[in-house]
Design a protein around this nucleic acid. Structure first.
Lengths: 231, 231
DNA sequence: TGAACGGTATGATTTGGATCAGACCGGGTG
DNA sequence: CACCCGGTCTGATCCAAATCATACCGTTCA
């Protein structure tokens, strides 16, 4: 057993840390904190000071932002290995959105200062961060360009990307092991719970996308892909 | 006069290059290219291979992305000093959106390879890029959270941020020296030209925001800020 | 000179989805 | 047990904005 205050850190689950030298890991160990969160528990709120970088060791975390018109927008769903709150922590600014555990989760937190020092001395770390940011950027611009498309199309896109990122294929189609309420689905595409429900239950009847325990099944990807953005 | 192929480079207009050492600048000089673009001319298209990083020396450039439902979304307006196409060029991927000169513009282009090499050796450059990306990221998430707000509110937000970024204040209010067609305004908020026209001409009558030669005048910022997101 | 054209303007009509209003169901929990 | 509560479902109504239509510039250009 490791002594208290120096937890065993599962470096392997965090790709961004793969470039760290043993000495760097050793120096980081006494500074980091590992904490578990229950489903629905808030990790940080919109507007909080970004004092730490967080990394997901296990579980799933959603990033939500309050919309000016009321309600929330679900911006991202992160899983093991993903950095959380990196955008805000890099500058000395406050979080532009909140992070909430979508299911029971465990997070590693590194004080802002320490991570920042590491970043200055380790170009590969900077490169990894830059790479992750550009990927998210491309995703976000794609989402923005979907404005004006029908809700059904946008929900279809959500599940298609979820299928790509977390889906498991078997003989009955693709299974997406993510539990989302209809409200959360609505928040992902900027609509109301009611219309999300209508679309989801129609899809259920038609066998396009079925809700079940612990996730969703997509019997036939092509059916989802064929849903048109307009008309 | 500098010899052909080695243009005089106005380093000062590009903040990102402020950290470059004289030797680095010297090595870059024979590799870069400077080119002028007419208003409306395309700098790169969506889907093109990202072979260069571009920097704006003068003029304005818009970033537009084709929407799945048809039409364009205007994602960004960049001015002198801003990097263009950085997201795509960093990875070996193609541009996720097109760049078009909003007015006559001059751009400096650095081959992807060279810029990338520079990035690896100069941590401050990486830091600057990272900083710029995080800023844009925050902006993008804010825009995304505006889904569901009324069009009038979204257009108001566009002009308020334009006023912050490029506005010049005088005794008659703020003047925003950017020429935008009603269609381009529509593309910025994801609506149609007609509704953009209706809102803009109503604002003109009410003196909230006036269109004139070479830009727009906002007599009273507060009037724009008071426009509610819903109801 | 006049035809073609891009941008602006305004009215009439239509519609996707928001809003409002109930209803049902399974799982806590006092 | 009855009660409540969060999530799901469905129907009825409403409305902001899309769509369709038509007109009016100023300018380029043949």
């Amino acid at each position: 057993m490791p002594p208290i205050g120096s937890p065993a850190i599962p470096w392997a689950v965090i790709p961004l840390f793969s470039s760290l030298k043993p000495a760097e890991r050793e120096s980081l160990r006494p500074l980091v904190r590992i904490r578990s969160y229950d489903e629905g528990e808030t990790i940080f709120r919109e507007g909080d000071d970004a004092l730490h970088f967080h990394f997901i060791l296990g579980g799933k975390v959603k990033i939500v932002k309050a919309a000016p018109a009321g309600g929330d927008i679900l911006l991202e769903i992160f899983g093991p290995g993903d950095p959380v709150g990196a955008i805000a922590a890099y500058e000395e600014r406050s979080f532009p959105a909140a992070a909430v555990a979508l299911e029971a989760a465990s997070l590693l937190s590194v004080p802002r200062q320490e991570f920042f020092a590491l970043l200055a001395s380790n170009p590969l770390l900077a490169r990894g961060l830059l790479l992750g940011l550009t990927r998210r950027m491309v995703e976000l611009t794609r989402k923005l360009s979907e404005r004006g498309s029908r809700v059904e199309y946008r929900i279809a896109r959500v599940f298609l990307t979820l299928a790509d990122r977390a889906g498991r294929s078997d003989n009955t189609g693709v299974f997406v092991p993510v539990t989302l309420s209809r409200q959360e689905i609505a928040d992902m595409v900027g609509t109301t719970q009611e219309t999300a429900i209508r679309i989801m239950s129609r899809w259920g009847k038609d066998g396009v996308l079925v809700t079940l325990e612990g996730g969703f099944r997509i019997p036939d990807r092509a059916r989802l892909e064929q849903i048109p953005p307009d008309e």
